[in-house]
Each structure stands twice: as structure tokens, then as C-alpha cells.
């Protein structure tokens, strides 16, 4: 549409998508700030910081990456099917939700294991790591929790969003369109994880 011929306050379709993109830029800055925290901690001199990532479970992290990527695949299918008015769209959306829940369970299990090893910053680590600077290890887990925790909160809201659309499909005025907007958000969550995974798990 040309800049000259707009108006009538009806442009719901392009507006919605544009609005979501602006929102995602905003969300991107939220994570940028947290990732900045990571970089500052990592680049600080004398840090045993990277030792923290060696304590993380690489297999579980990789598995989770796969799970989240497949969920993005599912929701992409859901949007395509939605625009074709196929009944499979709802199913694919539900599959997305299921994969999201699997992701959270695996993440929860990882937290559980780390807590068992006494790695999470809720208690003192100095007895377990009587090395010179246990606090750097601790700092890693501070950052790790902040980043993955914020990300997990986003996964939870994504599950609520996509799940809600799948459940109330019939009651929505334009379910396929709404699903498309939710899919943008879901892909965003995925992209964020694609950044977090190498930063936290791979850069050992």
C-alpha cells in the first residue's frame, strides 16, 4: 500500500503483524541487556567464568535445542495449514504446545540436576568448590539463571498463547491470522534460544 492512500482505520491485517514485529524488537532489547550482562561477566579479568559452562549438560542442552527447533517447525506448518483453512492447523498448534512443554520439562530437569550438584546460586558454593575463586562459577550460574529463566518465562507465555488459540479456535474471529501472529512470537523465542545455547553451553 502506498503511503499516500491509507486510512479508513481498517488496516487490521497489516497492522497486527507490524505491531508484533515492533513488540519483538522491544523484546530483543530485553534479551540484549541480559546478554550484555553475560558478556561483561565473561570478559571480566581473571574469571573462572567459563568453568561454569563445563558443568552444564551438553546432551540435554542439545536435545532441548532440537525440541525447540521442531516446535518452530510445527508452528510454521500450523500457519501454512491455517491459511489453507485445513483442520490440521489446530493439531499442529497443539503439537507446538506439547513440544514447548517438553522443552520446559527438560529444562526443569537440568535445573534439578544442577541444584543437586549444589551449583545454583541459592546457597553457598565455597564448600563444594574450595578453589580460589568459586564466586566466578557462581556468577556464571547467576547469569545462566537470569537468561534461561527469562527465556523460560517467554516459553510459558508462548505456550499459553498458542494453546489458547488452539483451544478457542472456533470462537476466534480470524483464528488463522491470530495464529500467525503468535507464530511470530514463537519463532522469536526460538531465535533467542539459538543465541543462548552457544553462549551458555558451547562456549566452554
Amino acid at each position: 500500500m502506498s503511503a499516500e492512500a491509507q486510512g479508513h482505520a481498517t488496516g487490521v491485517e497489516p497492522s497486527g503483524e507490524f505491531g508484533v514485529f515492533v513488540f519483538l524488537v522491544s523484546e530483543g532489547l530485553l534479551f540484549s541487556a541480559l546478554i550484555l550482562g553475560y558478556l561483561v561477566a565473561r570478559l571480566a579479568p581473571g574469571a573462572d567464568f567459563a568453568a561454569g559452562s563445563r558443568e552444564l549438560s551438553l546432551p540435554l542442552g542439545t536435545l532441548n535445542t532440537a525440541v525447540l527447533l521442531s516446535s518452530s517447525f510445527c508452528i510454521a506448518l500450523a500457519t501454512i495449514w491455517g491459511s489453507e483453512r485445513s483442520r490440521w492447523a489446530r493439531l499442529a498448534a497443539l503439537a507446538t504446545v506439547a513440544l514447548g512443554i517438553v522443552f520446559l520439562c527438560i529444562k526443569g530437569y537440568e535445573y534439578f540436576e544442577e541444584a543437586q550438584k549444589g551449583l545454583l546460586p541459592f546457597r553457598d558454593m565455597s564448600d563444594r568448590y574450595p578453589k580460589a575463586e568459586p564466586q566466578h562459577l557462581r556468577l556464571f550460574f547467576d547469569v545462566y539463571l537470569a537468561l534461561t529463566g527469562t527465556h523460560a518465562l517467554h516459553v510459558i507465555s508462548g505456550i499459553g498463547l498458542v494453546g489458547g488459540i488452539a483451544l478457542f479456535w472456533r470462537r476466534l474471529a480470524r483464528p488463522a491470522h491470530t495464529l500467525k501472529l503468535a507464530a511470530l512470537y514463537w519463532h522469536f523465542i526460538d531465535v533467542i534460544w539459538v543465541f543462548l545455547f552457544p553462549l551458555l553451553y558451547l562456549a566452554r
Partner: peptide, 14 residues
């Protein structure tokens, strides 16, 4: 609330 001390120098934070 949780003691996540990214700003806490005692934990190496800034």
C-alpha cells in the same frame, strides 16, 4: 529475592 548477584561484587558481579 533469589540472590542472583549479577551486580554483586562479592560474587564477581559488576
Amino acid at each position: 529475592v533469589f540472590g542472583i548477584g549479577i551486580f554483586d561484587p562479592a560474587q564477581g558481579g559488576d
